[in-house]
């Protein structure tokens, strides 16, 4: 588990309620209001998308919505910056291939 239960300086880190969301068809849990990327990281997801031309994996890089490396398809909308988009119950989150959720043809 990579969540910090007790921080030596900040104490307990306050979170919203525990909710369920869907990642590539799999059911996962995270805290409402935390960035989607954090909920995914807590569940061990590191790859958010594959680049269009070279099909290279990308994950969280800046974590503040600047670099756009962590974009995914969220509730049908591509290019959603998961590091700054709050998690909501029932969200459908898909790995992004290029600019869509359609995996590349091999």
């Amino acid at each position: 588990m990579n969540r910090i239960k007790e921080h030596p300086i900040l104490g307990e880190i306050k979170k919203g309620r525990l909710v369920t969301f869907h990642y590539n068809g799999q059911s996962m849990e995270g805290y409402e209001g935390e960035p989607i990327a954090v909920a995914l990281k807590a569940s061990g997801v590191l790859i958010h998308r594959y680049t269009k031309k070279l099909h290279k994996p990308r994950g969280i890089f800046c974590a503040i919505g600047r670099c756009t490396d962590c974009v995914m398809v969220v509730d049908g909308i591509p290019n959603v910056r998961t590091c700054v988009t709050p998690l909501k119950e029932g969200m459908v989150i898909l790995t992004q291939y290029g600019v869509s959720a359609e995996p590349f043809e091999v």
Partner: peptide, 25 residues
């Protein structure tokens, strides 16, 4: 450098201190 797991130090700070998650081990 583009591999998942290469992050900015600011990202580490954001994950640790705002969201309470370890960027790595």
């Amino acid at each position: 450098w583009t591999l998942p797991g290469v992050i900015g130090a600011g990202a580490a700070q954001t994950m640790l201190n705002l969201h309470g998650i370890l960027p790595g081990n």
